[in-house]
Amino acid sequence: MTENTALALEDLHKSFGATAIIRGVSLDIRAGSCHAIIGPNGAGKSTLFHLITGRLKLDRGRIRLAGHDITGLSPHRVFRHGLARSFQVTSLFPRLSVFENLRVAAMWQARCGHAYWRSVAGYPGLHGRVLDMLENLHLTPRRNVPAAALAYAEQRTLEIGLALIGGAHTILLDEPTAGMSRAETERAVALLRRLAGGRTLVLIEHDLSVVFDLADTISVLAEGQVIASGSPQTVRGDAAVRAAYLGTAAEDLA
């Protein structure tokens, strides 16, 4: 591990019952990079994110975030060390407005704590930060709509926004563009490019055009193991990856 490693995974293992899902994953993710994780369905990509963020307990292994050992911490503690995430299955606050969704996500960073004696409107910077994010997400006209009433693509955009607004230095995005149309995907990619600025992005993505567009490193996960890792060019040429990606995806890779 070097000085500028944002996230270091050391020999992670996880089984559900008798089935081993993650079987010895080790990865170093460089600070400030955009690192894509690809792999077939059921490879364990989401499970890997759940392990990193404390949603699931590791069987074995160590996780370091910017030098801090975060192994075994609960999700909110992991967040406080500077790691945020989005979900593959949209996970918002359905009855809260878009504005309120984003504000809740920005509270920890604005040092709101658990205050119940002070109006949330009185925190310097919080309001403006939410307005900026609304603007960036192109959701300003929808700011007072409950999240449940948004269109699907808008919900996915808000999902990304919740992960980005909290000021984390490392952000894990689980299939941010899943289910989006071509045009919507392009907008999401532009958004990520704009907002990434100096932060570390770890991206699970099936859409290979997005991957090659954004990522500067790609790791391929198959059956719970990293079978290839490197620059887009190296991964593209890797024989093992081709084997794992038989079918349509293989042609995309070529």
Partner: peptide, 23 residues
């Protein structure tokens, strides 16, 4: 209208997500 009040609403709607937002 305080942070706790708003976080309470958030926990009502989706406690899991709150956990991933630092609380």
């Amino acid at each position: 209208r305080t942070p706790l009040g708003r976080l309470t609403n958030a926990v009502r709607d989706n406690p899991l997500r709150v956990d991933f937002l630092g609380y």
